[in-house]
Measured scan of single mutants.
Amino acid sequence: NITNLCPFDEVFNATRFASVYAWNRKRISNCVADYSVLYNFAPFFAFKCYGVSPTKLNDLCFTNVYADSFVIRGNEVSQIAPGQTGNIADYNYKLPDDFTGCVIAWNSNKLDSKVGGNYNYLYRLFRKSNLKPFERDISTEIYQAGNKPCNGVAGFNCYFPLRSYGFRPTYGVGHQPYRVVVLSFELLHAPATVCGPKKST
């Protein structure tokens, strides 16, 4: 009989979020998941679920829940969905086509923008091939755009693969920082350890 609540607040209220190319993952297990707390949290810009209804989450049990978190621009949030393409979905964070879970995003301009620009948040701009679902690539190898080998030196046709967002408070909404948490639900042939409040007695 599990009684402790799942530590969703640790994920959602973290002081610093990860850059999207180096997205953070927390495994959540052996706890009671009260999703209504999240669902009623006012400032969400997006709360979209795939393969599961957000209002039914509290009735369900899962083997594991993974909480992935990172920061992207407002106009990139739409790429955090199954079957998407674009710089983020291709080179930074890719969801599987059969994704079961929820994508939760909110504007973090007050936290993550600075006058003069916040350059701490990076994304991958160049990559030889697209990421596989949930693949994480933190390499900083110089990207070779031409035929000539770069030998690890940036220059003509040789690019550092990461780019900084440089968030400023005055940017338009599409270019403002958004914090994103992706909850993915794993249902294995194993005992369920993460259940909603109704199922955990």
Rank of each mutant, 00 (worst) to 15 (best):
N1M: 09
N1Q: 09
I2K: 15
I2T: 03
I2N: 15
T3V: 05
T3R: 03
T3G: 15
T3Y: 14
N4L: 01
N4P: 07
L5G: 01
L5K: 03
P7V: 05
E10T: 04
E10M: 01
V11L: 03
N13G: 09
T15E: 07
T15P: 05
R16S: 06
A18K: 15
Y21W: 02
W23F: 05
W23Y: 00
N24R: 08
I28F: 12
I28M: 11
S29E: 02
N30A: 09
V32N: 12
A33S: 11
A33W: 03
S36G: 01
V37M: 12
V37D: 05
L38F: 10
Y39K: 15
N40R: 06
F41H: 15
F41D: 11
F41C: 02
A42M: 06
A42Y: 06
P43S: 01
F44D: 00
F45D: 01
A46I: 11
A46V: 13
K48T: 02
V52I: 01
P54M: 11
P54N: 12
P54V: 08
T55E: 14
T55V: 07
K56H: 09
N58R: 05
D59N: 02
L60V: 11
L60Y: 15
T63I: 06
T63K: 15
N64E: 12
N64M: 12
N64Y: 06
Y66W: 09
N75A: 02
E76Q: 02
V77M: 05
S78Q: 03
A81Q: 02
Q84K: 04
T85M: 08
T85I: 11
N87E: 01
N87M: 12
D90E: 12
D90S: 15
D97K: 10
T100I: 15
I104W: 02
W106M: 12
N107S: 02
S108T: 14
N109Y: 07
K110V: 02
K114F: 00
K114S: 00
K114W: 00
K114P: 00
V115F: 00
V115Y: 00
G116W: 00
G116H: 00
G116T: 00
G117K: 00
G117V: 00
N118S: 00
Y119D: 12
Y119E: 05
N120S: 09
N120D: 07
N120A: 15
N120E: 10
L122K: 14
L122S: 14
L122C: 14
L122W: 01
Y123V: 05
Y123H: 00
L125I: 09
L125P: 09
L125R: 03
L125M: 12
F126H: 14
F126W: 00
R127K: 09
K128Y: 00
S129E: 05
S129G: 10
S129I: 04
S129N: 07
N130Q: 14
N130D: 12
N130T: 01
L131V: 06
K132G: 02
I138Y: 15
T140N: 00
E141K: 01
E141G: 10
Y143H: 12
Y143I: 04
Y143F: 03
Y143Q: 06
Q144N: 08
Q144E: 07
A145M: 05
N147K: 11
N147F: 15
K148H: 04
K148D: 08
K148A: 04
P149V: 12
N151D: 01
N151H: 10
N151Q: 12
N151C: 10
N151T: 15
G152N: 11
V153A: 15
A154G: 12
A154K: 12
A154E: 13
G155K: 02
F156A: 02
N157H: 08
Y159H: 07
F160L: 07
F160D: 10
F160P: 00
R163S: 11
R163F: 00
R163G: 10
S164H: 08
S164P: 09
R168M: 10
R168W: 02
V173I: 03
V173A: 11
V173D: 08
V173C: 06
V173H: 15
G174C: 11
G174P: 01
G174I: 01
H175Q: 11
H175S: 14
F185M: 12
L187P: 08
L188W: 11
H189K: 10
H189T: 14
A190C: 11
A190V: 02
P191H: 05
A192N: 01
A192K: 10
A192V: 13
A192P: 05
T193Q: 00
V194I: 05
V194N: 07
V194D: 01
V194L: 13
V194A: 06
K198N: 14
K199H: 10
K199D: 10
S200Q: 01
S200W: 01
T201Y: 11
